[in-house]
């Protein structure tokens, strides 16, 4: 069973590469997978992509970390206090409904061309999925369980830390997993809009130079970063919420 589980993604990957290899599109538009592979190896070994990757990775990690902490804290407050939920939740939804892409140029102008504007865009775009999952998680606790712990005269803080948060953890981790990938997209979009370094900046520069294999090598790195973020959080998720699925 486990072997089957491990083999199926490999089969899909091989099929994907095969189709990519066989698609009759000019290599300047869509370079062949082997060319991209060689380019990734070359660009990493000569250090070109390393510097750009470090910049982008800093922005992603910082944006994701800040957004996660804020989303969990605000989510707990909104989930715990009804008056706060009534007061600010509609506005949080309004922020989410506003396409970040449209306000991103303003963010660039306010926070400048450096790392901070990308952190803000990445953070903003990844904030809401975590927040909604925190609120949903806190509201999903079994009412009988809540009644039971309250009958022991547990304080509000105890209820939150001993019952609500542990019950909400699977939800919170699902939000974190989704946001970790979205954050990569946000940061790259920010780099497209205004930057002097990072993988997004590298892609735009290479687009101008018609260097398609370089563009795709950066895309491969970004995909790997996104996957690494996602699976790292999933691993932590499984370790922390070990009771899930049992």
């Amino acid at each position: 069973m486990d072997i089957k589980k491990g083999v199926s993604p490999i089969i899909v990957f091989v099929l994907f590469i095969l189709v990519w290899q066989l698609v009759p599109i000019h290599p300047l538009v869509l370079p062949k997978p082997y060319t991209v592979f060689l380019r990734v190896v070359t660009d990493i070994s000569n250090g070109i992509l390393v510097g750009e990757t470090i910049v982008t990775l800093q922005e992603i990690l910082l944006g994701f970390a800040i957004s996660s902490v804020l989303a969990v804290l605000i989510g707990i407050l909104v989930g715990e206090f009804d008056f706060l939920k009534n007061a600010i939740y509609p506005y949080l939804i309004a922020i989410q409904a506003t396409p970040v892409m449209t306000i991103a140029p303003i963010i660039i102008l306010i926070f400048g061309y450096g790392i901070m504007s990308k952190v803000v865009i990445g953070g903003l775009i990844s904030f809401f999925p975590i927040l909604t999952n925190v609120v949903n998680g806190l509201n999903s606790v079994d009412k009988e369980l809540l009644e039971l712990i309250k009958s022991f005269r547990a304080s509000r803080f105890k209820v939150l830390t001993k019952v609500k948060l542990p019950c909400a953890l699977p939800y919170i981790f699902t939000g974190l997993e989704t946001s970790s990938v979205i954050c990569v997209v946000g940061v790259i979009f920010g780099e497209f809009l205004g930057s002097s370094s990072g993988l997004g900046n590298y892609i735009v520069a290479k687009q101008f130079n018609l260097d398609s294999s370089a563009i795709f090598s950066a895309v491969v790195i970004l995909t790997l970063i996104g996957m690494l973020m996602f699976f790292s959080i999933r691993l932590i998720h499984k370790k922390v919420t070990f009771w899930e699925g049992k």
Binding site: P105, I108, L109, Y113, F192, L193, G194, S196
Partner: peptide, 15 residues
Amino acid sequence: INTVDFPTQLNGFIS
């Protein structure tokens, strides 16, 4: 030299 996307550049300059 600072590079930005075109609309940001133009709007930033005008404003």
